[in-house]
């Protein structure tokens, strides 16, 4: 791997605890993500990984703890505020806008970059028109980057799974985020598609300098891509270290392989 360009802490998670009723989903989790880093969260099913992402972008409201993003500390916030601060994400089960075309999905990803009011939009002249064209150019750059020109005008609901995942990444990139959260970007893909997706993730990180936090089950991918890995199990933090250390960490091995009975 080339020389990594890692900066200061961009996201700091402090003592987050989250529960639904009696079920404790996250228990006192603390970690940080540095600028330019690729950070992974791993753990068995039900470990609380997706919940952690949901907390970071404001969808779940933790009972305890705080999140500091780009110097702003907050306990709770609405998802659209997180989005406007520069956090974008993709979803474990694809959450595209199925009735819309690829282009419209990506353009919707840019909605925060667009400001003209209802009046100009209704007439579609002046600033509304200029803005639409400017953002179209930005959307086309992403379409080129992800190599999805051919499906630009196709409704996404009818696309094959792998392409949908790619469009979803495009929609997240359209917001030009500082922090990109990827929830199992390679789930259900064959090895060829996985390779493509890996390449996109590395390129995004490399070319745009986007900080990435991802959840993934494929350990090969995680160990290759990540700068640091956080391990969760039943809502508890098991380990947080560079891939090589995590690989040899006894608690992690126990959690994944089971502890032999004495």
């Amino acid at each position: 791997m080339t020389e990594r360009n890692i900066g200061d802490v961009i996201l700091k998670v402090d003592n987050i605890s989250l529960s639904f009723g009696v079920m404790k989903v996250l228990d006192d989790i603390s970690f940080d993500v540095r600028q330019g880093e690729i950070r992974s969260i791993i753990g068995p099913n039900g470990a609380g990984k997706s919940s952690m992402l949901n907390v970071i972008n404001g969808f779940y409201h933790p009972q305890q703890g705080s999140i500091t993003f780009k110097g702003n500390t907050r306990k709770q916030m609405a998802p659209h505020v997180a989005a406007s601060q520069g956090i974008a994400r993709t979803f474990q089960n694809i959450a595209l806008f199925k009735g819309m075309s690829t282009l419209d999905n990506i353009m919707t990803g840019r909605n925060l970059k667009m400001k003209t009011n209802l009046f100009w939009q209704a007439l579609h002249i002046g600033p509304a028109r200029t803005e639409e064209i400017e953002n179209r150019e930005a959307a086309e750059r992403i379409i080129d980057f992800l190599d999805i020109q051919a499906i630009r005008k196709k409704p996404v609901g009818k696309l094959p799974y792998g392409l949908q995942k790619r469009v979803e990444l495009g929609r997240a990139l359209a917001a030009e985020p500082d922090l990109l959260l990827l929830d199992e970007p390679m789930a259900g893909m064959n090895s060829e598609e996985k390779e493509d997706m890996c390449r996109f993730i590395i390129d995004v990180n490399d070319e745009f300098g986007t900080t990435i936090t991802l959840i993934e089950h494929d350990m090969g991918v995680v160990m290759d891509l990540s700068d640091r890995v956080l391990v969760l199990d039943y809502g508890k933090q098991l380990a947080d270290d560079v891939p090589d250390k995590v690989r040899t960490n006894q608690t992690v091995i126990d959690a994944y392989l089971g502890v032999p009975h004495e």
Binding site: N57, F59, A78, P79, H80, A82, A83, S84, A88, R89, F91, A95, L96, F97, K98, G99, M100, D104, M107, T108, G109, N111, L112, M114, T116, L118, Q121, A122, L123, H124, A128, E131, E132, R171, A172, A175
Partner: peptide, 26 residues
């Protein structure tokens, strides 16, 4: 005009998947 601009896309985003729409800033 409204349907093909930002406002229309935001409406459709809410229609198709409201949670995802909110998470990308709608």
């Amino acid at each position: 005009n409204l349907a093909r601009g930002r406002i229309g896309r935001n409406w459709m985003a809410i229609r198709d998947m409201d949670i995802a729409a909110e998470l990308i800033g709608v």
